[in-house]
């Protein structure tokens, strides 16, 4: 099924009052963030999307695909489900070697040129992590960051899912801006649940959650783009320090001056 549009129709917040944001409409290529403090309902919102809520979840939201409720096959057959959801708990359990596992998945998806698809997938995930994945390694031997990167790469390339939900990927130690940059190259809808200012500011718009309700939509605008630039510098500095610490270096005077 060709997906052009995903619509979220507001329901009620934790107080039982209608949500201030009555409708969010997303089209292919949109990258958005969901922000808000812990317990504000961010994960519940993406759960509703993953479930294709049809006024049948506690929030009473409705999710429409191309303007109509999702067909049942979406929820019963994961290979027809257009939504890939990578949660903080999602993991690989298989102990097969990475390339063999990807081959099985690509086979089920009936992808052509399986070996080049696998190569592309591993390349993609290697761009997101510090240490490259050895295709002969067992899936269960991958580090936390490698696992997260491979989950994303597999959903984007082999799964070819049109809608990808990513719940707090900043915790995984993968290269976030690189991820955003790479993901923008694929015509998909990306929804990031995030506490990370950089991810939030690099999105097309962000949905603000409060007390279980969507309370505000904030579009990216020029004023913020300037702030984003500054945050980028700070963030890059922190990443640079992290890299130095990781590789066994000391942080010296020069870094101190730069920080000032």
């Amino acid at each position: 099924m060709h997906i052009e549009k995903l619509t979220i129709l507001g329901g009620v917040g934790k107080s039982g009052q209608p949500e201030p944001v009555a409708e969010i409409s997303l089209k292919m290529g949109d990258v958005i963030s969901v922000v808000g403090s812990t317990g504000s309902g961010k994960t519940t919102l993406v759960d509703d999307i993953a479930l294709f809520a049809d006024r049948n979840t506690p929030t009473q939201r409705q999710v429409l695909i191309n303007g109509v409720p999702a067909p049942e096959e979406f929820t019963n057959d994961p290979s027809k489900n257009p939504v890939a959801f990578i949660t903080q708990h999602t993991n690989f359990l298989s102990d097969l070697p990475v390339n063999e596992f990807l081959k099985i998945h690509a086979g089920i998806r009936r992808r052509d040129n399986i070996s080049s698809v696998i190569e592309e997938t591993i390349d993609f995930s290697n761009k997101l992590t510090g240490e490259p994945i050895d295709p002969e390694n067992a899936m269960t031997e991958l580090s936390g960051g490698q696992t997260r990167a491979l989950l994303i790469a597999d959903a984007v390339i082999i799964g070819n899912s049109p809608v990808i939900l990513l719940d707090e990927i900043e915790n995984a130690g993968i290269h976030r801006t690189k991820a955003l940059e790479l993901l923008r190259g694929y015509e998909k809808i990306f929804i990031f649940v995030t506490h990370d200012p950089r991810i939030a500011l690099l999105s097309d718009f962000r949905v603000v959650m409060q007390n279980g309700a969507m309370v505000k939509i904030i579009e990216a605008h020029d004023g913020e783009a300037k702030v984003a630039e500054e945050i980028k510098k700070l963030d890059d500095m922190i990443l640079h320090c992290r890299k130095l610490i990781r590789s066994g270096e000391r942080l010296d005077e020069d870094i101190f001056k730069e920080l000032r």
């Binding site: 057959d77 994961p78 290979s79 890939a84 959801f85 990578i86 949660t87 708990h89 999602t90 993991n91 690989f92 359990l93 298989s94 596992f101 990807l102 099985i104 998945h105 089920i108 998806r109 989950l151 597999d154 959903a155 082999i158 799964g159 899912s161």
Partner: peptide, 14 residues
């Protein structure tokens, strides 16, 4: 299903 990768869900189902 929330605990495993999308890929493994698909293989399991197949």
């Amino acid at each position: 299903i929330d605990l495993i990768s999308q890929a493994e869900r698909e293989v399991f189902r197949a």
